[in-house]
Design a protein around this nucleic acid. Structure first.
Ligand SMILES: [Zn+2]
Ligand SMILES: [Zn+2]
Ligand SMILES: [Zn+2]
Ligand SMILES: [Zn+2]
Ligand SMILES: [Zn+2]
Ligand SMILES: [Zn+2]
Length: 610
DNA sequence: GAGTTTGAAACT
DNA sequence: CAGTTTCAAACTC
């Protein structure tokens, strides 16, 4: 019992310090419905394969701005796919490498285990649910919590003493701040993309593939990076030079790795696990961690692929090693890419030029809007329903509708990108990045910006979408039965009066939600502003210095070769992800810097009031 | 479902 | 920054 109790909890320890702004959210929807009260609750409606719900705004911005991009990622296409929860990953476009691997999807949203399904009726076939956490001691306010880490509220989770919800927004906000303080990129997407221009290694280039890498890399010791314990593996990406894993078998050309996918057992997880175990065991057996590492594996690789990996440098750990152990922050690599990126991504806002960009730019993405619309629709329907008829059965209907709506929107999204399962990739950059050249030491690498989902939308677009909203509303409503059931209640109400009231209620709810949303946006902007300014101050000095040499430094020139050895890119093939798609999706957005902002501010002074 | 393993995140 | 502890998921049985 102790723990479970919830409410009280000792929260404290960490929280003392934090204060800052925080936000991030992914799912707007959830937020919007601020209430679970209103909605029946089920969170899940997640239509998309993506993980959690949608978000509207992204906080990333703050981060992004802050750092320039340390990383090299030039890349062009920011994508929007979603990715697993991995922490940070970068994607680079590349050529195809392996075809075979695709079978497995990297991210699988669902866990095999039993999840309590909140929703009930999901059809089996389609999973829609987003994943639910089972946190017991973190209050879902630490990155340990997948929900929190992904910027979403817990919804339908099995957590104990959860504070990651609207009701505990204040606490959550603090936690976010603290988290960001610790790691400004904490909520960033884990993936970034970059063009990989060179095809050096791969002969098989197809085109358009994307190279993805985890920004921070993994540090696995016993999994061989062939189990989901490994974030790289889980994200379906190859380990890269950013990884500090031991005895890594998650690289291109790895026999063990190939064995896992061989065939396509796409779904057959059991098989994969087994194979992974065999691989791991085998390796260990023969050499133990430290031993003669390379032997088997490498050989195999060479044989199979010959050149690819080649000598480079795989150290005993199986990594590429560049210099020697520590990863060279790769000066070269980081810098270089910059230029490339630009080239590749023409669309990006001007990296080089410093143009003014609204702090709020790109925060709202198309999908977000859709989500918002969907949510509002649902709310509206629900309100109407509630108002007119409070029968229990209705809940179900609403839910279904909601699910449907979300699903459709997600579906759309997907279609445009084509699959999504893979990951969210982001490109980098952004905006603020302007300063180009900064190269950070390495780590921060990320920076670039990754966004989790989608593309940014301009204000104009947003406006346009408003109309669409109406349309969507109607369209969505009628077909699904919102009208038929929920809405219609209002419209069909016998008396006009009831209807009017119902409409009033609907309007109230919708507007309220929207207001909340805007407030959040405001808060986000404020935060971003703050960060920006401080950043600017901080970096001004540095920048100057760099400028002098900086740009000039192009060691990289084209980027084609970034590193000493083949560009450092990782090994790469994303099995699941489809390269092409990714690329496509990525493109559109260039400035993705924002992440989602979770927070909902409700307090501010300048916030909108209803 | 209980128990173990694992590596990220948090903490010191 | 390294070493340790905490945590929740992945995995095993
Ligand atoms: Zn949680
Ligand atoms: Zn949760
Ligand atoms: Zn929770
Ligand atoms: Zn790993
Ligand atoms: Zn790795
Ligand atoms: Zn690895």
């Amino acid at each position: 019992m102790g723990e479970s109790e919830g409410s009280e909890f000792p929260p404290k320890k960490q929280q003392q310090q934090s204060e800052n702004a925080y936000f991030q959210t992914k799912k707007l929807a959830r937020q919007l419905d601020f209430t679970q009260g209103v909605l029946p609750d089920h969170p899940q409606s997640q239509p998309s394969p993506l993980q959690k719900p949608p978000l509207l705004v992204s906080p990333a911005a703050a981060q992004s701005q802050s750092q320039s991009q340390p990383q090299p990622q030039p890349q062009p296409h920011p994508q929007s796919q979603l990715q697993p929860q991995v922490a940070e990953i970068q994607v680079v476009p590349q050529q195809q490498t392996q075809q075979q691997q695709q079978p497995v999807r990297a991210v699988k949203p669902e866990s095999p285990k039993s999840i309590p399904i909140p929703n009930t009726e999901l059809k089996d076939g389609t999973p829609k649910k987003q994943r639910q956490c089972n946190c017991k001691h973190s209050r879902c306010l630490k990155l340990y919590c997948e929900c929190f880490a992904s910027g979403t509220y817990c919804d339908g989770c099995n957590c104990v003493n959860c504070y990651n919800n609207v009701e505990n927004e204040a606490a959550r906000r603090e936690a976010v701040e603290a988290t960001l303080e610790r790691n400004p990129n904490a909520f960033r997407p884990k993936i970034a993309s970059s063009p990989h221009g060179t095809r050096d290694s791969r002969e098989e280039t197809g085109d358009g593939l994307v190279f993805v890498k985890h920004n921070k890399g993994c540090h696995c010791k016993k999994s061989g990076c062939l189990k989901k314990y490994c974030e790289c593996f889980q994200a379906n990406i190859l380990c890269s030079e950013n990884c500090k894993c031991m005895d890594c078998k998650n690289f291109e050309g790895s026999e063990e790795r190939q064995a896992l996918f061989h065939g396509d057992h796409g779904n057959n997880m059991a098989y994969i696990q087994q194979a992974a175990n065999a691989a791991i065991t085998g390796a260990i057996g023969s050499s133990g961690y430290a031993s003669p590492p390379v032997s088997r594996k490498r050989k195999g690789q060479e044989l199979f692929f010959g050149q690819t990996v080649k000598d480079p440098s795989i150290d005993r750990l199986g990594h590429f090693q560049q210099g020697s152990h520590t990863r060279p922050p790769a000066p070269s690599s980081s810098l270089p890419s910059y230029p490339v990126a630009r080239a590749g991504n023409a669309t990006i806002l001007g990296p080089s030029k410093i143009t003014y960009r609204s702090l709020l730019a790109d925060i709202i993405q198309p999908q977000d809007l859709k989500e918002l619309c969907s949510v509002l629709v649902v709310l509206s329907g629900e309100a109407a329903k509630t108002f007119s008829d409070q029968r229990n059965s209705m809940e179900k209907q609403v839910e279904d509708q909601r699910e449907t709506l979300l699903a459709s929107s997600a579906h759309e999204r997907l279609q445009s990108h084509k699959e999504s399962d893979a990951d969210k990739i982001v490109a980098n950059d952004c905006s603020s990045a302007n300063h180009a050249d900064k190269v950070g030491p390495d780590d921060s690498s990320s920076d670039g910006a990754d966004m989790p989902k989608g593309r940014p939308m301009s204000p104009g677009t947003l406006e346009l979408m408003c109309d669409e909203q109406d349309t969507m509303l109607m369209a969505a409503a009628s077909p699904n039965g919102l009208m038929g059931r929920g809405c219609n209640t209002s419209s069909q109400l016998p008396c006009g009066q009831g209807m009017a009231e119902a409409h009033a209620e609907q309007e109230r709810i919708v507007l309220t939600k929207f207001r909340d949303c805007l407030n959040r946006l405001i808060t986000f902007g404020e935060i971003k502003e703050t960060k920006c300014s401080s950043l600017a101050r901080t970096e001004l000095g540095n920048q100057k210095d760099r400028l002098s040499n900086g740009i000039g430094n192009t060691r990289t020139g084209t980027g084609s070769q970034r590193g000493p050895f083949s560009n450092g890119v990782a090994k790469a093939v994303p099995p699941t992800a489809k390269p092409t798609q990714m690329v496509t999706s990525i493109v559109s957005t260039s400035g993705s810097d924002l992440q989602k902002i979770p927070g909902l501010p409700q307090n501010g002074d300048n916030k909108l009031k209803s």
